[in-house]
């Protein structure tokens, strides 16, 4: 599994460097989104890297290679899900480093807020988006599912932004934490498990 995840980074060396510039750019431009900015930044980077890896695999038909190697299909599918969280962790880390650098350089009013609630919300958004998009990817391949997933990403980005803007000063995460955290976590976990099972079912039945 580790090698499959490492491979997703190695085949995108240029995209990884490019993503650093994008995150710096977002720090300047997404400030007005407030607490939703972190989620939009991380989601965009995850989307770019997940689809970047997928596009390369589609182009060379690398699924034929993976299926011919002694790797279980469960491992191939699971590695894609884990990759998303590794990409998200990378994007969160870079966002934090940019913030720290701005603080160290004493740049006033730079970037958007990074809070624990914001990070948890980002992880929830990443889980929601990719739980919905992966079954389509494993059913149709990256290229064919690209448009549907693009619409999904934009709908989610605007949806998250709209919801969070209804509750200024970070009230929303607090309200959710008070009443429905357990319900939300359980719902997302269930969605994730269902999504994995569906993706695995599609991948097992796909022909290459």
């Amino acid at each position: 599994m580790l090698h499959l995840i490492k491979k997703d980074f190695l085949i995108q060396k240029k995209s990884i460097i490019f993503s650093l510039f994008i995150m710096v750019f977002f720090s300047f431009t997404l400030e007005s989104l407030g607490s939703a900015a972190l989620a939009v930044s991380v989601l965009s980077i995850c989307y770019m890297l997940v689809y970047g890896a997928g596009a390369q695999e589609d182009k060379t038909g690398s699924d034929r290679l993976l299926i011919s190697l002694p790797i279980r299909k469960e491992t191939i599918v699971l590695s894609k899900y884990v990759s998303v969280y590794v990409f998200a962790a990378y994007a969160l880390l870079i966002n934090v480093l940019i913030r720290l650098a701005a603080h160290a350089l004493q740049i006033p009013n730079f970037g958007y807020p990074i809070t624990i609630e914001g990070i948890l919300g980002t992880v929830a958004a990443v889980t929601l988006i990719f739980s919905l998009s992966f079954p389509m990817i494993f059913k149709l391949g990256y290229q064919k599912s690209r448009m549907a997933n693009f619409v999904l990403l934009f709908a989610a980005a605007f949806g998250v932004t709209y919801l969070l803007q209804q509750f200024p000063n970070g009230e929303a995460p607090q309200m959710i934490a008070e009443y429905e955290t357990a319900f939300l976590v359980a719902g997302l976990a269930l969605l994730l498990v269902l999504s994995f099972c569906l993706s695995l079912y599609f991948y097992r039945n796909r022909e290459f």
Binding site: K7, L10, I11, Q12, K13, K14, Q56, E57, K59, T60, G61, S62, R64, L65, S68, L69, P70, I71, R72
Partner: peptide, 20 residues
């Protein structure tokens, strides 16, 4: 899995990752 561990394959097209 057991079988593929003992099979070597060469395909007509390249399926290796081009960037690696």
């Amino acid at each position: 899995i057991e079988i593929r561990n003992k099979i070597g394959f060469v395909y007509d097209e390249n399926h290796y990752y081009e960037e690696l």
